[in-house]
Design a protein around this nucleic acid. Structure first.
Length: 989
RNA sequence: GCCCAGUUGGCGCAGUGGUAGCGCGCUCCCUUGACAUGGGAGAGGUCGUAGGUUCAAAUCCUACACUGGGCACCA
């Protein structure tokens, strides 16, 4: 399942990472022959989208949603959705996402809507959805409840006011005032009590500093026991002193004002003292004060605060004002401060339930659990697994991500699912307050509805009727009218529908009857075939909001996991380490990268960056609209605003958000993607070379003995690479996979094999085997790279098919016209050959040493040199065998190899492992001495290290023998190197 | 406040007990028919700090510092 992007706006690099990781996996699995579905879609994103559209409506037309009404606003949001959904799909398609596009879904599609309806119905019937009066987080601008997850805390410079509440009729020896402190003084208008601790002495045990307060607190405790009151100033309302442990003697004055209507903790206090104190709501939905605020009615919160303070000041009731940094919850969407607000909302019961909860009721996977949250907790780690044997594993660091998941779930806090919005799935509840007679007539009449299409609950005098689907709505029409039942105007939290995404998209609860859009693939067996799914790919910020809820709802509705793997990829940060986002002006549109560097370059680099749990810093550059050059935003100077920068060359100002009319817009990109472009170019050119040389290649089986050393070497390297790439993908490590493929392709195939094999193409006896191996290696390379860089590999595949239609070694490989449908490389273990790789390692070492001599002496590559190699053991054998390659790769006209050859008198010398290299005819004693000195220093320090180790009996006794052996060998090698170098230095002198 | 990560060459990152790697950037050399968006060679790191465990620590443990994240709370 694709993590459905919000239709709030276009995709940025974070989404690109998410989508590319999914495409990498889906293409790989497709090549492995797995039955694969990648279900694409978009999310209506309730509050987020409505907020964006409302904001624009106000900016452009100076209207609020109330000015234009529900229908008109919803129409505008649909327009917005259409625009951005098509833009998102276009972005994803340009990124090469190989989704099942004919199954694209939107969370408000009919298919999804029926799942939402069904899930809601079941939860309601099971008593897991209820309506309650609760203190919720209220967004005064959008005028809706928001969940805890939609709040961001920001530290704001504020004050801490200490207020004095007069005691009603103080007796002698009693305080005349009680001091309470608050950061929100206006809430005092809604105070219904002042609390102090029932046992201040116990609470202050061991707290010497605060002991002085004890007499006062004990006095207040006694007064509270006595039922005494204080006078709430301004409102002139007597309110009781109560005893509650919420009052912390170690803080402030030790007493606390209780405002149950506007503080979650105080609401808790209210619930414990319902018999004595009440709840007063002083706010209107728009954040102004209501009639309960008396003279302050109509004022917005901040103005009311000033007025209240002024009046308290005038009465001398402010004891102290402290400056203080206060974390204030802001609505993530409107960015305005959240007000705790008492209102009726719908909740999903997350905690344990008496008698437990039946999960997947009616399916063959049905099981029982203590509660919804508990079921989701059990699904990760532990011994639980579903009836089909599944549980959830996070990748690449299960413990870490499971920790985040669990720490959130274990709170088991009820989930507020109602939103006072117009954009979303409307809650399928019809309700009315009925007096007793009508209520009993209703309960009779409702029985006429088709059984199992409805469920109702009576709470006090209110009936709450849930209708299962649109059919049920039709049959209930007259009943609804008769009793005046009205549908809730609220819509569901957007996460409610996304929690169902893994099966709502597949037609649950009725795949056969599911109404898909015109031209889309009908669902039929889709649910059986693709649920449970296998893997969910997402970022870690979504683990709680979405992953946990999908698990919960999947288990509840179908009795099984929506997926068993969750791949958590890195977040993309900018050059300063800040999260990338459009609104911050550091967001990169993947399409801009694609235009600059190409899709495959984008994908290649994203894969390379996805290493593990490490977030990725992606330095962002603007393309200067004046010079076309890149300007690094981490170091550029700002212009007039934080979204404008100065072009360092021209000094002109440009804008990265594109909101300022008079300032030119600059595109944002990152030169980090150059690597990807270079890789693709190299791949293209190397393939071109192969095509040129394959010429009239026709496949003929090649027996292993027809292979030359370099053929066996490259096949061995290829075999190891296929293994590494496959294992890395299995372990959700794209970086390791692409790294291994790159290393093979570039460093082995291009830098060595192609160079070694080049001469053979001109030799008719040598050419066939070389062509067979080259075409095979290229074939396998393209397959391995395809999931990461699909476009260029597909193009090259077509050309390869034209040039060498049949490829293979001992047997021909099955043909595939398209690479996307070709199979993943088979294991090539039979070619893994450590000894040939070791031999080539020695060859490469020697060649490098000779090239180094050339570089140091600035000998032109055209100049052919002569060399003498003094070697022994395996090195001697390998070098002798590979002599022709030494000649061609080091640019030698002659080479003499032996265990005791006579070194030329005047020669540059070097040591490569067990081999001494003498390059004839080039010698500058000064330079030579420097080179040898440097090598000597290295060898000496190695010897010192080894000797120190070996002379320590603790090492030789305690370390594993293999390690000690290696160390001994290292020392012998180093010593013979030392001797050789010293000998060479002596020759110079 | 609690918890979890990260800290490795100028930059971005690998490396989880046995003498530090990759890519970019940098320096030098090279336009030889795949490729200068390239090739060859090279310089550059006492692995955040301080202790500890171990024959041996970038790697394990403890503390601290900084950065990021999660959770809770904030009269």
């Amino acid at each position: 399942m694709m993590p459905l992007p919000n239709v709030t706006g276009a995709l940025h690099m974070g989404h690109a990472m998410d989508n590319v990781m999914q495409d990498l996996l889906i293409r790989w699995h497709r090549m492995l022959g797995h039955d694969s579905l990648w279900q694409p879609g978009t999310d209506h994103a309730g509050i987020a989208t409505q907020a964006v559209v409302e904001k624009r409506l106000f900016e452009l037309e100076h209207k609020t949603r109330h000015d234009i009404g529900r229908e008109a606003l919803v129409r505008k949001i649909w327009d917005w959705k259409d625009e951005y959904e098509s833009r998102i799909v276009a972005q994803q398609q340009r990124m090469g996402c190989s989704c099942d596009w004919d199954r694209h879904r939107f969370t408000l599609d009919a298919v999804c809507a029926s799942a939402v309806r069904e899930a809601f119905f079941r939860l309601f019937k099971d008593g897991l959805i209820y309506r309650g009066v609760r203190l919720v987080n209220w967004d005064c601008l959008l005028q809706t409840a928001v969940s805890d997850d939609e709040i961001v805390y920001e530290n704001v410079q504020g004050h801490f006011w200490h207020l004095r509440y007069p005691v009603v009729d103080p007796k002698p020896g009693e305080p005349t005032h009680v001091v309470v402190a608050t950061t929100r003084p206006e809430t005092m208008l809604g105070d219904t009590a002042v609390a102090c601790h029932p046992d201040p002495r116990g609470a202050l045990e061991g707290n010497e500093e605060r002991k002085a307060l004890l007499p006062l607190l004990e006095k207040l405790r006694d007064m509270a026991k006595d039922g005494r009151k204080v006078m709430l100033p301004l409102m002139e309302r007597p309110i009781p002193l109560i005893l509650d442990e919420w009052a912390k003697p170690e803080l402030g004055s030790g007493c606390v004002k209780i405002t149950p209507g506007h503080d979650p903790n105080d609401y808790g206090v209210y619930e414990r003292h319902k018999d004595r104190i009440g709840v007063i709501n002083i706010l209107n939905q728009d954040g102004t004060l209501n009639e309960n605020a008396g003279p302050y009615k109509g004022l917005p919160v901040m103005q009311a605060r000033k007025a209240v303070l002024k009046d308290l000041e005038a009465r001398g009731l402010i004891e102290l004002v402290e400056d203080r940094e206060i974390p204030i919850g802001h609505s993530d969407r409107s960015k305005t401060p959240i007000e705790p607000y008492l209102s009726k909302q719908w909740f999903v019961h997350m905690g344990d339930v008496e008698g437990g909860v039946a999960m997947g009721r009616g399916t063959d996977k049905e099981f029982h659990t203590a509660g919804l949250a508990q079921a989701a907790m059990d699904a990760v780690g532990g011994t639980w697994c579903s009836a089909s044997g599944l549980r959830l594993t996070f990748h690449p660091d299960h413990e870490r991500y499971a920790g985040i998941y669990l720490s959130w779930l274990k709170e088991k806090r009820d989930w507020c699912i109602s939103r006072q919005l117009w954009w979303g799935h409307r809650i399928p509840i019809w309700s009315a307050s009925l007096e007793a007679g009508r209520m009993s007539r209703f309960t009779e009449a409702v029985k006429s509805l088709p059984e199992s299409t409805y469920h109702y609950r009576v709470v006090e005098d209110e009936v709450q009727l849930c209708l299962r689907n649109e059919g049920a709505e039709k049959s209930a029409e007259s009943l609804l009218n008769e009793f005046g039942l009205e549908r809730s105007p609220d819509v569901l939290d957007t996460w409610f529908s996304s929690a169902l995404w893994p099966f709502s998209t597949l037609g649950w609860p009725d795949p056969a009857g599911a109404k898909v859009r015109e031209g889309q693939t009908p669902l039929h067996d889709a649910l059986d075939r693709y649920y449970p799914g296998s893997c969910l790919v997402t970022g870690r910020d979504i683990i709680t909001l979405w992953v946990a809820r999908m698990v919960m709802m999947g288990l509840y509705c179908l009795g099984d996991m929506p997926f068993h793997d969750s791949f958590i990829h890195a977040n993309i940060l900018d050059g300063k380490g800040e999260r990338m986002s459009k609104s911050k002006g550091n967001g990169i549109d993947p399409v801009d990268i694609i235009e600059q560097y190409g899709t495959d370059a984008l994908r290649y680099v994203l894969c390379e960056m996805q290493t593990g749990t490490q977030d990725i810093r992606l330095p962002v550059q603007a393309v200067s609209p004046f010079t076309g050059k890149l300007v690094d935003l981490a170091h550029a100077k700002h212009g007039r605003s934080i979204f404008t920068y100065l072009c360092p060359e021209t000094g002109n100002e440009f804008d990265v958000l594109g909101t300022l009319q008079d300032v030119p817009r600059a595109k944002l990109i990152s030169d980090r993607f150059e690597v990807g472009r270079a890789f693709c170019t190299k791949l293209w050119n190397a393939s071109r070379f192969a095509f040129m040389n394959l010429g009239d290649y026709a496949y003929a089986p090649v027996s292993p003995d027809a292979l030359r050393e370099e053929d066996r070497w490259i096949l061995s390297r290829l075999a190891a690479t296929v293994r590494t790439v496959t294992e890395s993908l299995k372990g959700y490590n794209p970086s390791a996979a692409i790294g291994a493929a790159r290393e093979f392709f570039w460093s082995d195939l291009c830098d060595w094999y192609i160079e070694l094999v080049r001469p053979r193409f001109k030799d008719s006896r040598e050419a066939p085997a070389a062509k067979t191996v080259l075409s095979f290696a290229l074939d396998q390379t393209l397959r391995m790279l395809h999931p990461a860089v699909p476009f260029i590999t597909e193009e090259l595949w077509e050309k390869l098919n034209a040039q060498a239609p049949v490829r293979g070694l001992e047997v021909p490989l099955p043909k595939s016209e398209l690479l996307i449908k070709a199979s993943w490389p088979q294991k090539l273990e039979r070619f893994e050959d450590r000894s040939i790789e070791a031999e080539f390692g020695r060859l490469q070492e020697v060649v490098r040493v000779i090239r180094d001599v050339r570089a140091k002496y600035q000998v032109s590559p055209k100049t052919q040199l002569k060399a003498v190699l003094r070697s022994r053991g395996e090195s001697l054998a390998a070098l002798t065998k590979l002599q022709r390659h030494i000649l061609s790769q080091a640019g030698l006209s002659a080479v003499l190899i032996g265990d005791a050859p006579v070194p030329p008198r005047l020669s540059a010398t070097a040591v490569a492992g067990e081999t001494e290299v003498f390059v004839e005819g080039v010698l500058d004693p000064e330079k030579e001495r420097k080179r040898l000195d440097k090598q000597l220093a290295q060898v000496r320090s190695n010897i010192q290290l080894s000797e120190r180790k070996l002379s320590d009996p603790r090492f030789t006794e305690k370390a594993p023998t293999a390690i000690v052996e290696t160390e001994r060998r290292r020392l012998t090698d180093s010593k013979s190197q030392l001797a050789a170098l010293e000998e060479q230095l002596k020759q110079l002198a």
